[in-house]
Nucleic acid binder design. Structure first.
Length: 459
RNA sequence: GGGGUAGUGGUCUAGCUUGGUAUGAUACGUGCUUUGGGAGCAUGAGGUCAUCGGUUCAAAUCCGAUCUACCCCA
């Protein structure tokens, strides 16, 4: 099953792994289109909530990177360094950003002067670099990461908390477009982001039973604003440090879409992500080729005018080849049009997610396509959510655990936490942020608790 | 972090034990016939055998290092 996650990614040809640097792959045109669709959703979501897109430099000077002690401790083992410029060694080494806090915050300290400048809400979509020492894997663990990161500054803790809640709302809307179920889990103290006050992980579950972290939301409090001196003057003329948050997601989203929705025939793309939402296949017949072609092009034109992303496949190959091709590529809806349909005034609809075929009236084309795409999106999310729910097992003992995500009791103590991780041979993902009824005992010490903890083998 | 397996036209692969310039399939180009689930025939093009070094008259083949991919264990 672990293999399946990988095979689907590779068969679909979204990335070319032949580039000769470990963990650095080439995006193919089709793969990049999918990534761009996801980026577009992210931009829409964050623009709509008054975030400003920015773009900071890739290189960070060593001294600037080193200001926050926890942060550098968490990252310095996995940064790439630039040590030379041309033939000359650099006085101050430069690193490729593993994440952009230390690139942005010195500049934020110049941008933020007064309470009127707050909140400062920014984001960028850039590549980051991490020298992963573990096995690399396309989209899931790479050394050059296509990365989204929002960075915000707030007058006080409560306003930063409001930002975290806004991030949850944005995420919910995005994930429904991607048809990806997830849990918001507050990480343990020993697993939080280096430098954060607390970290909330966005975790999904793959068909293999392993968890995949899709993103993370961090509350920094004043942990970065103090070393980077991001201060403002409040209404009373007093100088205060800002409270900060970040939200990060990456190309892992593509990996998640592929692994969660893909099947034996290849990719299955959610309609909001699909480069082509609909593919039209003309089924030509001897002597009638012109007639069928024209009718098929008319379908294409009508859908295109209605704002549907549609492609007509007029290659001179047999229809069966086209069916297999577009199934592999994951196009949500296939329309077939041949003489048989034309004579009846129908169009053949074939859903990618279920394979179900149906005949629809040609006259009602646009509304039938729209409602079918909506139905496909709805069903894909519903199926994936159900799958994730059934992949979580609630237990009151760590013996003989099933190959699932585990939900159990934890008193919250660090000693018990480590013992849970050791005995279960899984990682603690965290405790739920959202409502999650539970009434049990810590599996280690037996102390009663109302909060469950989630464990999994991480991808 | 520890161990293991592998790299040959775009892709997959034979050849490696026993050294003598590479096999087949698929995909690709062209032409004709086809078209409701992977068509057929003809023809054409495509390889510094991962890289670097060593042994040898001669290396895909033997030896070493490096890079990359994959698997298992922590």
């Amino acid at each position: 099953m672990v293999q399946r996650d990988r095979r689907e990614v590779e068969k679909a040809n979204l990335t070319d792994k032949r580039y000769p640097i470990k963990g650095m792959n080439v995006w193919t045109p089709y793969g990049w289109k999918i990534m761009q669709a996801i980026d577009r959703h992210i931009r829409e979501g964050f623009d709509a909530t008054d975030h400003q897109e920015v773009c900071f430099p890739l290189l960070i000077p060593e001294d600037q990177f080193a200001k926050e002690k926890e942060h550098i401790k968490g990252f310095d083992a996995e940064v790439f360094w630039v040590t030379h410029a041309g033939l000359n060694p650099l006085d101050v080494k430069l690193l490729l950003r593993p994440t952009s806090e230390t690139a942005m915050y010195p500049i934020f300290s110049l941008w933020v002067r007064s309470h009127a400048d707050l909140p400062l809400k920014t984001y960028q979509i850039v590549n980051t670099f991490r020298y992963e020492t573990k096995q690399t894997r396309a989209f899931i663990r790479v050394r050059e990461i296509h990365f989204f990161e929002s960075h915000t500054c707030h007058a006080d803790f409560e306003d930063a908390e409001r930002q975290v809640r806004e991030d949850y709302d944005i995420l919910e809307e995005l994930a429904s477009k991607w048809c990806i179920p997830y849990r918001l889990l507050k990480r343990t103290e020993w697993d939080k982001f280096p430098g954060a006050n607390y970290t909330v992980g966005v975790d999904t579950l793959l068909p293999s039973g392993r968890s995949l972290q899709l993103g993370s939301i961090h509350q920094y409090k004043e942990n970065f604003s103090r070393p980077y001196e991001i201060k403002y003057e409040d209404e009373k003329g007093e100088h205060r440090y800002v409270h900060q948050t970040t939200f990060g997601m990456s190309e892992r989203l593509v990996g998640a879409v592929v692994a969660i929705h893909g099947d034996d025939k290849g990719l299955v793309l959610p309609p909001d992500i699909a480069t082509n939402q609909v593919v039209v296949i003309p089924v030509l017949a001897k002597g009638e080729t012109e007639k069928v072609s024209n009718a098929a092009r008319a379908l294409r034109d009508e859908l295109k005018a209605a704002g549907v992303r549609v492609h007509i496949d007029e290659r001179d190959v047999r229809p069966g080849v086209k069916y297999y091709d577009w199934e592999l590529k994951g196009v949500p809806l296939r329309l077939e049009l041949g003489m048989r349909d034309i004579e009846k005034g129908k169009v053949t609809f074939v859903r990618r997610d279920t394979g179900e075929k149906s005949l629809k009236d040609r006259a009602r084309l646009v509304e039938e396509v729209r409602s079918m795409l909506a139905l496909i999106a709805h069903d894909m999310l519903a199926r994936a959510s159900k799958e994730m729910a059934s992949g979580i097992a609630t237990v009151d003992s760590l013996e003989g655990l099933p190959e699932k995500m585990i939900r159990t009791g934890w008193c919250g103590g660090e000693d018990c936490g480590h013992e849970i991780e050791n005995r279960s041979e899984r990682n603690i993902l965290g405790t739920p942020v959202e409502k999650d009824e539970f009434d049990g005992k810590c599996v280690v010490c037996g102390k009663p608790t109302k909060t469950p903890v989630y464990l999994a083998r991480a991808m």
